[in-house]
């Protein structure tokens, strides 16, 4: 187990390093006019050179990279070009928003997906099964921005027009400002995200539940006269959930850098929106910082999933 962990972590670090090289290379191959922008319209070549020097942009690329890498290992991701704010600080500000969005949506989509999946699996080929499968696929097919806009139209615009101003048009209200406004601001994004992802979980739960319910030990449990609901929930669901937990870990990791669209549509200044802003301003340290951070989230999530998998299913051997 220890060996396995060490190897997995080693792989993770290797992957992150490769990503840092790739992202760095990508942005330095492209012509950058950050110094020009910073110097403004009246910037003389001297000011531009000065700015370049201050930002370290006059050094050869590999030196800049080594400099970045040396600091990154110490947990310092550099400063943004425009306001000289530490990138870690920018990430620290945006992260709670993205995490709030991801976790809240996760609760919703897990509940929705697993519940629908169990219903589908226990009533295979019934009307409910077909209906729920279609429901899941319908929302799975939705482009996230379209779903977001639709929710805004009906639940914000239409409702507000009718005098029910329950939901804001977007934006974020931190938890410190009270749980009520926080919840109000996040509910629509949660729904938008959850409906999208629930489909995967419905299908996953249904498939794995059907497999499990066909197992001998389930038949044994039934033949012992245990109530059907207990058979399904206690005996079936427990082992059927392993693939769901795995997928859940992977999805959560990916959401850290993957909720760009939802954040944009609902004007949530989370990691995704921050990254998009940085991309538009060619704010290299921020882009690299967020991309690396989001990749790290995926890598860590995958390692946790592997460990969790081994714990949940002792049959999995680690080597």
């Amino acid at each position: 187990m220890a060996m396995f962990l060490i190897r997995r972590i080693g792989h993770g670090i290797l992957v992150l390093w490769l990503i840092s090289v790739a992202v760095f290379a990508l942005f330095f191959v492209a012509p950058s006019n950050v110094a020009q922008t910073l110097a403004g319209r009246q910037g003389t070549p001297e000011t531009i050179a000065l700015i370049k020097h201050r930002l370290g942009l006059d050094l050869p690329v590999w030196q800049q990279y080594l400099h970045f890498l040396g600091n990154a290992v110490k947990g310092d991701l550099g400063y943004d070009y425009y306001h000289q704010v530490p990138v870690t600080h920018i990430i620290g500000q945006a992260l709670p928003i993205t995490v709030s969005l991801a976790l809240g949506a996760a609760v919703l989509w897990l509940a929705l997906g697993v519940f629908n999946g169990v219903i589908s699996a226990t009533h295979p080929r019934s009307l409910a099964d077909r209906g729920l499968t279609l429901f899941a696929l319908f929302f799975y097919s939705f482009p996230s921005f379209l779903l977001g806009l639709l929710l805004l139209y009906f639940l914000y615009f239409r409702l507000t027009l009718s005098g029910f101003g329950w939901f804001p048009a977007g934006g974020y209200s931190p938890l410190a400002g009270g749980i009520g406004p926080w919840f109000q601001h996040l509910l629509l994004p949660w729904i938008a995200l959850a409906l999208l992802l629930a489909a995967t979980y419905t299908r996953l739960t249904r498939g794995s539940m059907l497999d499990v319910l066909g197992e001998d030990y389930i038949r044994t449990a039934r033949s012992k006269g245990i109530r059907e609901s207990r058979v399904v929930v206690v005996h079936g669901l427990r082992s059927a959930l392993t693939p769901v937990v795995t997928q859940f870990g992977i999805d959560l990791g990916q959401l850290i850098g993957g909720v760009v669209v939802t954040e944009t549509v609902f004007s949530l200044p989370g990691l995704g929106q921050t990254a998009v802003t940085a991309i538009n301003q060619q704010d290299l340290p921020v882009i690299i910082g967020i991309v690396l951070f989001a990749s790290a989230a995926v890598v860590v999530a995958n390692i946790l999933v592997d460990i969790g998998y081994a714990v949940l299913d002792p049959r999995v051997r680690l080597h």
Partner: peptide
Amino acid sequence: SVPFLLVAI
């Protein structure tokens, strides 16, 4: 592992 949409953008 790369956040696809971010890097694509």
